[in-house]
């Protein structure tokens, strides 16, 4: 082969190898580090895996926030108005965390069905609703409507 072509081929092969190795590694790392979102209904139905990092979210149930009197431990329930899940967290909650507000928590579901959060996110704008939460609420709303419809039609 012509030496210039040989060199060019060498460079191109090197680039292809580096890029495909990089993309392979990227995709592998992505597989390891994604956090799936589950709604309270999905968690109560048993669709969510235990002891794996996931996200859960919904509206904080009024009157459910309980703080420990000595430490920063806190528990509260989140709901999609179908089912609710208890979230346990130790630390400082964000400024916009309050009852009736949509939140997303990141953490693991333990064997008792309590969500052990290591991070709680509330958004920085009170008008803003996390899209996952609003969709979970919409889905729950749909099933309620369907139930009402079927109940009405059976009556």
């Amino acid at each position: 082969m012509h030496p210039v072509r040989k060199k060019r081929l060498f460079v191109i092969v090197a680039i292809v190898i580096i890029l495909s190795a990089a993309i392979g590694l990227i995709l592998y790392a992505l597989q390891q580090n994604i956090n799936l979102f589950y709604s309270p209904s999905q968690i109560v139905m048993g669709d969510a895996p235990h002891d794996i990092n996931i996200r859960a979210g919904g509206m904080v149930v009024k009157g459910s926030v309980k703080r420990h009197s000595e430490t920063l431990a806190v528990t509260f329930d989140v709901t999609d108005f179908q089912h609710s899940v208890t979230i346990s967290y130790r630390g400082i909650l964000p400024d916009l965390f309050r009852e009736g507000q949509g939140i997303v928590a990141q953490g693991k579901l333990d064997q008792n069905g309590v969500f052990q959060a290591n991070q709680v996110l509330a958004k920085h704008d009170e008008k803003y609703m996390p899209p996952e939460v609003s969709e979970a609420l919409r889905n729950a709303q749909k099933t309620t409507d369907r139930k009402i419809n079927t109940e009405q039609s059976t009556h």
């Binding site: 790392a29 992505l30 994604i34 956090n35 799936l36």
Partner: peptide, 9 residues
């Protein structure tokens, strides 16, 4: 499904 990619990635 809905996912988020965290800082560890």
């Amino acid at each position: 499904g809905k996912i988020s990619v965290g800082a560890p990635y």
